[in-house]
Design a protein around this nucleic acid. Structure first.
Lengths: 338, 338
DNA sequence: CGCTGGCACTCTGCGCATCCGAGTGCCAGA
DNA sequence: TCTGGCACTCGGATGCGCAGAGTGCCAGCG
């Protein structure tokens, strides 16, 4: 077990390193933090911390830098979440309040988060699987071609074409539309399929194929195309990454373009509270030298999607966590209002 | 006026520099290109080209590199557009053919373009102003709340909420829907407003306010919200930019996040044919060391949007122009089919 | 008049040796 | 258990010299 002071030393190392980006030595530490002990003592503590794997030296006779394990301990035990200042909160509120539609909310959120944390921001669109149906619309575009439009409680709209073999009478269309809506409006997406399973039976034989096609498309939209979308921003902040960048930055940019990777990244985050993945804790190799701070957000009490930031492992965790949490809260509020 | 051979020398310089990324000297030139003259002669030509501002030396006693003006001449006079190989064409076709909806088309296009050119790709969504109306739908979500859905010939869907003071009868709604569609389907967006101006008059007094609100929203959607969207991809290719990157890459990343900047960039491109903006020809300062190659694309004969790539001024212009042109063509075809 | 070979000159980049200082580990003593 | 002292290590900065690539200019040749 690490003594109180050793933890204090670790905290000091993390803080200094995050600030200066340079390995921190024992002398500098005692000067900048009133630890009440001499450099020699700190050196002993450092040797121990290194032995335990919390810090490392880039090369002999250089200062120490925290390892992933060190950051982990820092985040778990040593650092709180730094609340934002009142002006910051007000700024968030103002910035988000101007949004006119869902795209705009997400767009503003991503920019806000990038600016606040000075890192790369990732915001997932409110997921379809968690949300409920506000309205289903069916239009006939051509005699044997329908369009299915699905509107969610979060304001998201999905549309799909449905090709049918036989023409579908306008009256049948109205009928189907009405029945569909009466059954699914207000339902969660995941609950919908069983609710409409028996619909074809109540239609004339000639229309059944078409009804089935519509239902198939609906299911598809709900499940398969529950494909999550996301928006990223603040990539210019990647330039603050480090000195050696081409190598560091490239895989990160690649990862950011792979929506699948990002979604999995966010998806892994815990359900409640701010989650932090540090360095090698990220499954995706390209992100091994980055940390991901994420949190769920939602219109009601429960999370319908995630948002977060990606930055160097050497980041201001308390501040970032605070910003991410605050933004998530405000976005939730905005969504609930609209 | 520059003699034939001087132009040939310029072409050789551009080609070599693009290939090697290093200033090219007279000796290397004569070795790699059968110019039929000695290095000394080439030196004289180079001195002249430099005097005219087509090439420059980074420092005394280094090779020459093309200036923006040099690239301009190269693109205008010396280089054709390199057509893609048949396998490449087939690959494009296959890749784009799998697309299921507009988002998918744009997404695939951007990835394709990025891969093909190994640069950053930008694809604008088919513009609303140029396209025509395929269908207008009106739904009532709540007694005094309507939703207007607009479907374009390019498959884009826009939806807007309309709040009205008074409830609107379902029959009036159907009536309005029918009238709207009969007047505007197949019309270009810009032509719509005058065509619906007199609609309120044919309704009962009590409904007129609502009809007007709907029309106002429609107009708004057509004009204001003709806001152009775009998608970018291949940012990881930025790492191939140069050695001195942090400085070069940062403003580019920033520009890429400013949709407005990008839209203006593409917007400035000429109406027909592949347009090339080189270095300082770009109005936006951050892109002063990049070139933008863009072209319009559209479902019919005419362009409804633009697409292009952003890369270092030192790029393979013929190849890039060929790729951009080819992709635009295929996307046009795909859009026309769907 | 234009092309060529030759020559002197100018840089940059690289390797090498040197030096300085920050930082360490260890040990004896309080 | 902490502290001060001391010898040691190593990376980074600095300075020097050299090789190589490239240039400009000039005199000569066809």
């Amino acid at each position: 077990m690490l003594s109180e002071r050793r933890l204090e030393v670790l905290r000091a190392i993390v803080q200094d390193y995050v600030g200066t980006e340079e390995p921190v030595g024992s002398k500098a530490l005692t000067e900048r933090h009133r630890l009440g002990v001499s450099p020699a003592t700190v050196r002993n503590d450092m040797a121990l911390l290194e032995e335990e794997g919390y810090i490392a030296q880039p090369h002999t006779s250089a200062g120490r830098i925290p390892t992933d394990k060190g950051y982990r301990l820092f985040v778990d035990k040593l650092a709180g979440v730094k609340p934002l200042s009142t002006p910051e909160r007000r700024a968030i509120q103002n910035f988000l309040d101007g949004a006119v539609d869902l795209d705009d909310v997400v767009g503003r959120t991503v920019r806000l988060l990038a600016q606040l944390t000075r890192q790369v921001a990732v915001v997932q669109y409110p997921s379809l699987t968690r949300s409920t149906v506000r309205h289903v619309e069916l239009l006939s575009l051509a005699p044997a071609r329908l369009m299915l439009v699905l509107i969610t409680d979060t304001g998201r709209v999905e549309q799909r074409l449905v090709d049918c073999q036989t023409p579908f009478a306008e009256t049948s269309l109205a009928d189907l539309r009405a029945r569909l809506n009466s059954r699914v409006v207000g339902r969660r997406f995941t609950d919908v399929p069983p609710l409409v399973q028996d619909l074809p039976e109540s239609f004339e034989a000639e229309d059944r194929a078409t009804v089935k096609a519509v239902l198939a498309t609906l299911r598809e939209t709900l499940v398969e195309e529950a494909e999550e979308r996301l928006m990223i921003g603040g990539t210019a902040n990647l330039t603050r990454f480090g000195h050696d960048f081409p190598l560091t930055i490239r895989p990160v940019l690649e990862a950011l373009e792979e929506q699948v990777v990002l979604l999995k990244l966010l998806g892994e985050a815990s359900e409640s509270g701010v989650a932090v993945k540090i360095g090698h804790e990220n499954a995706y190799e390209g992100l091994n030298s980055t940390s991901v701070v994420s949190v769920g957000y939602g219109s009601g009490g429960e999370a319908v999607a995630k948002l977060g930031v990606v930055g160097p492992t050497r980041m201001d965790y308390p501040g970032t966590m605070g910003a991410v949490r605050a933004v998530a809260r405000y976005v939730g509020q905005i969504l609930a209002e609209s």
